Simulated scan of single mutants.
Amino acid sequence: MLLGPDGRPTTAGTGTLPPPEDLLRGYASIVAARRYNEQASALVRQGRLAVYPSSFGQEACQVAAAQVLADGDWLFPTYRDTAAVAARGVDPVEALVLLKGDWHSGYDPYERHVAPLATPLATQLPHAVGVAHAARLRGEPTVVLALCGDGATSEGDFHEALNFAAVFSSPVVFLVQNNRYAISVPLSRQTAAPSLAHKGVGYGVPGEQVDGNDLAALLTVLGGAVARARAGEGPQLVEAHTYRMQAHTNADDATRYRSDEEVAAWVGRDPLTRLEAYLRAEGVLDDERAAAVAAEAEELARHTREGINRDVEPDPEDLFRHVYSRPTPQLEEQRALVRDELARDEAASGANVTTDTRQEALR
């Protein structure tokens, strides 16, 4: 911890505070992420999104993950990491269309080096290690940062990914956002380990813990982990202690498994108010700058709202465009059949319109 819940610097951490410009950039991203969460949740209530897993309260983890990476690095997110995906530069509308039920996860992973959002727990982690291992074999300076939650550490994919990454010294950073619940299952029912960071020890992966609601500490710890991975020191595991202030998704009733008092205690550790208090005390942030940041976040919300509310006309050709880089003969045959059927339907529709027009003229 570098900043206490009240925003005051603390001696509990061993790192140095990041430069003010980095914290101000992070503040703007957290404000945008908070507004993004609010807007996406509203879109669910309006029936424009099927579901939304909010990261309200975890925004500092999301923002820091995107901020510590270089342009050529890769981010592997989970379904709850839409704010990190948007902070990485992906169009916030495209980061949500998977949750709308649209095609192809909505964005090109190669454009911003952001893998598709992964809904099954931990399945993206071996993929992340594979990308990191391939980059190492090619001699590229690429680092991969893979996000997951505490529940994912109970999955086999998590352990397989750590083991492979350690054996082959893959440049990958595993960021575990420990928000204390795997949906409704508390951490105490998931593991008997002293911490989730300890889980790396058995695989030879160094583990580190950090206050996940302290952006300054996150930038320092994650930045160090990325630097070590890039320098050839192999995989790193970081456990960020944070809290999901809202329900697991809009379909969840969090009051069934946690108390209002517990949530209130974490509200006092809000990553946004903590950082804002520090920046104001340091004279880096004033009312004018805060208003400008809020306006930028509101513009992002407007763009998101209008983009999701825009109906998209499905193109049947999309069934075939993205299956293989080189379509197989069977796929081309299926494409031709669909084209022929659509052409016949269009011709029949046109003929019906002509007949109706003639009949109307004869009346």
Rank of each mutant, 00 (worst) to 15 (best):
G7A: 04
L17F: 08
D22M: 12
L23W: 07
R25A: 14
S29A: 15
V31G: 05
R35K: 11
Y36F: 15
A42L: 14
L43N: 13
V44S: 11
G47H: 05
G47E: 11
R48F: 13
G57L: 05
C61A: 07
Q67S: 15
W74Y: 12
F76D: 06
T78D: 09
R80G: 15
T82P: 03
A84R: 13
V85I: 15
R88M: 04
G89L: 12
P92D: 00
V93D: 04
L96P: 06
L98A: 09
K100F: 01
W103L: 03
G106H: 06
Y107K: 07
L117Y: 00
A118S: 15
T119M: 12
P120R: 02
L125Q: 07
L125K: 03
G139D: 06
E140T: 04
V144C: 07
A146C: 13
A146Y: 03
D150Y: 01
S154G: 05
F158E: 12
E160C: 07
F168N: 12
Q177G: 00
R180M: 00
I183D: 01
I183H: 00
I183V: 04
Q190W: 02
S195H: 11
A197L: 09
H198K: 11
H198P: 01
G200R: 10
G204Y: 08
V210K: 02
A217L: 01
L218P: 06
T220N: 01
G223R: 02
A225W: 01
A229I: 07
A229Q: 03
R230N: 09
A231E: 13
G234A: 11
Q246G: 14
H248M: 10
A251R: 08
D252H: 10
D252T: 12
Y257W: 11
R258V: 04
E262M: 10
A264R: 12
W266M: 08
V267I: 14
D270A: 08
P271M: 02
R280Y: 09
G283E: 09
G283Y: 06
V284H: 11
V284S: 09
R289N: 03
A292W: 07
V293Y: 07
A295W: 03
E299N: 02
R305A: 13
I308Y: 07
R310H: 11
V312G: 02
V312T: 14
E313D: 06
P314V: 05
D315M: 01
D318N: 14
R321A: 15
R321T: 14
V323L: 04
P329Y: 07
R335K: 14
R339I: 01
R339S: 11
A343D: 14
R344D: 10
E346Y: 02
A348K: 09
G350C: 08
T354I: 10
T355N: 01
D356R: 15
T357I: 07
R358V: 04
A361P: 00
